[in-house]
Structures are given as structure tokens and as C-alpha cells.
């Protein structure tokens, strides 16, 4: 624990040093500019890790740390998520009791659409995630919603990501609805605010702290964070959704984590996914 505290202090200094560069825009609804944020984040990582290709950030920590990359390439030779994708395909194509199926709920029959999630729904005034719509599809057809986090929902989501591999992430923030930008700003704020007993923000670990050892772990750069979800983590021994990861990381600051799919987690996903525009979907992924 000592180590983490020291690191937190060190990072605090790093954050303070950046103050000098901080412009006075982008922090309220009037000035927030998602596209400027995206470019600034890319530039930050370009100067931080000049040897890494931007397109490689979809591979998380393996984009910037050669040692763990080697282990990971071995892991990917026999992808641990392979069976889960097959099971996901079967689940996806198994009709509901009423004869309908998931394909009826989604655009293009649910194939090759992962890159458009999450999106802003003007009708509902909220950010919609893929997992959310999988469960809404079930309920609309008289089925019980699946448990969040893991299991069938992660498998179905993994299959849908699989059919979308190599498609460019394309998150839109519609200009004609200011609430969309507010949701983006809320997610951005969540990401950068220090919290919990350890007083750590997501950014402390995944921007300033990326590729700096924290106990036994190297946090990945936030650029690319959402592209490969759901993920098969060796530590879990199974697939898990993005919000499962959010809860775990939220807890790592010694905060009480929130529930799956709460508004602020969906806003966080909206912000993080927007940062990845132009990168490609490579889900499901494998991580340590």
C-alpha cells in the first residue's frame, strides 16, 4: 500500500506540472470540444511513447510495453475467448419463445455494428450501450434480462464485436442536442476527477501513470481502452464486460463502485469511446 501512496504523490506532482500547459477551455458545456480532446489525447501519447503506432493502441498496454506484448502474442495464438464467441453466436441465433431474435432488434441484423456503440439517443435523452440494448431486446420480446458483467451477455456482446472487427469506431455527438455534449462532458469529468481513499483519478493511472508500474501492474494508456471489449481476462478466467472492468478500476481508488450501466458509467463509456474514433474494433480481446 505504501507504494501506491507514494506513487499517488508522485503522480500528483506530474498532474500539477501539467497545469502550466492547461488551456482555459474544454471544461464546461460552452467550451468543451470532443474533437480537440481526442487530438490532444493522441498527441499526448505520441510524445509520451513516440515508438508506438496510434493504430496499435487498441492493444492496450501491449502497444507500449514490449515485455508483456510477447506474453500476450503467445496468448493470442490460442485465443482464450474463441469458445465464448462460438457460444455467443449460438445464443445470438437462438430464437426467443415468441419466435423473434436479437437480429430483429438491431440494425443490419446486429452484424458489424459494434463500432457505433455507445450512441446518444435523442428520444430517450440518454447514452445507450450495446449491453443495455441486448437486454432491452430481450425484455421487449418477453424474455428476462440477462445478468450484467459476465456470462451470456458478455458472450453475445463478444460475438457482435467479432462480426465488427476492423470496423472504424465511429461515435457521434449530435450537434443538435446539447444533452449529448453534456453526457460526454460528464464522462470526461468522471475520468479526470480524483476520488476514493487513495485520491486517484482514472487519468492518474491511465494517462499520467500509463506504463508506470503500480504494484505488479502496468496501467494501459486510455487511448484504445474500449475497442476490445468484452475482454477475456486471465485473472477472471472468463469474459467480462466493460462495466465490470469499470467497477474494478473504480474500486482500485478505494471508492465504493457504482452499479452496472448507471448513467455516469455510460457517460464514461461515451467519452472513452469517442477518444477512440478512427481506431478499429478488435473485440473480444485477451488481457492478463
Amino acid at each position: 500500500m505504501k507504494i501506491i501512496k507514494k506513487l499517488a504523490l508522485g503522480l500528483g506532482v506530474a498532474a500539477a506540472a501539467q497545469m502550466a500547459q492547461a488551456a482555459d477551455s474544454g471544461f464546461d458545456l460552452k467550451t468543451v470540444d470532443p474533437e480537440a480532446d481526442r487530438i490532444a489525447l493522441q498527441n499526448y501519447f505520441k510524445s509520451r511513447f513516440p515508438q508506438a503506432e496510434v493504430s496499435d493502441y487498441v492493444n492496450g498496454i501491449y502497444a507500449v510495453d514490449a515485455d508483456s506484448r510477447e506474453q500476450w502474442e503467445e496468448l493470442e495464438e490460442f485465443p482464450p475467448y474463441e469458445f465464448a464467441v462460438e457460444e455467443g453466436e449460438v445464443l445470438f441465433n437462438t430464437p426467443f419463445a415468441n419466435g423473434k431474435g436479437y437480429a430483429d432488434c438491431f440494425e443490419n441484423g446486429g452484424v458489424g455494428i459494434r463500432q457505433n456503440y455507445p450512441y446518444w439517443s435523442k428520444e430517450e435523452g440518454t447514452v445507450k450501450t450495446l449491453e443495455m440494448e441486448i437486454n432491452e431486446c430481450r425484455e421487449a420480446n418477453g424474455e428476462k434480462p440477462l445478468k450484467w458483467a459476465k456470462g451470456d451477455i458478455a458472450k453475445i456482446s463478444a460475438y457482435m464485436a467479432w462480426t465488427s472487427r476492423d470496423k472504424e469506431i465511429n461515435i457521434e455527438i449530435p450537434a443538435d442536442d446539447p444533452r449529448a455534449k453534456a453526457a460526454y462532458l460528464d464522462g470526461k469529468k468522471f475520468f479526470y476527477a480524483k476520488r476514493g481513499q487513495l485520491n486517484l483519478s482514472c487519468a492518474n493511472c491511465h494517462v499520467q501513470g500509463s506504463n508506470i508500474r503500480i504494484r505488479a501492474d502496468l496501467p494501459s494508456p486510455q487511448l484504445g481502452h474500449t475497442s476490445h471489449f468484452p475482454v477475456f481476462r486471465s485473472k477472471w478466467g472468463e469474459l467480462g464486460t466493460l462495466h465490470r472492468r469499470y467497477k474494478g478500476c473504480h474500486k482500485d481508488s478505494r471508492s465504493k463502485p457504482l452499479s452496472h450501466q448507471v448513467e455516469v458509467y455510460r457517460n464514461l463509456e461515451y467519452f472513452q469511446s469517442y477518444m477512440n474514433n478512427g481506431l478499429v474494433i478488435n473485440g473480444p480481446g485477451a488481457r492478463k
Partner: peptide, 19 residues
């Protein structure tokens, strides 16, 4: 302390955003 942290975050969260 959590409540204080929230107040602090409202004012200072932007300090670690890359520009």
C-alpha cells in the same frame, strides 16, 4: 473527506487533462 474531494474535483478536475 469524500465530500471534500468532490468539492475539490469540481474546481480542479481539469488540471490533468492533456491539452
Amino acid at each position: 473527506m469524500g465530500i471534500q474531494q468532490h468539492a475539490y474535483a469540481q474546481k480542479h478536475w481539469h488540471l490533468s487533462v492533456p491539452q
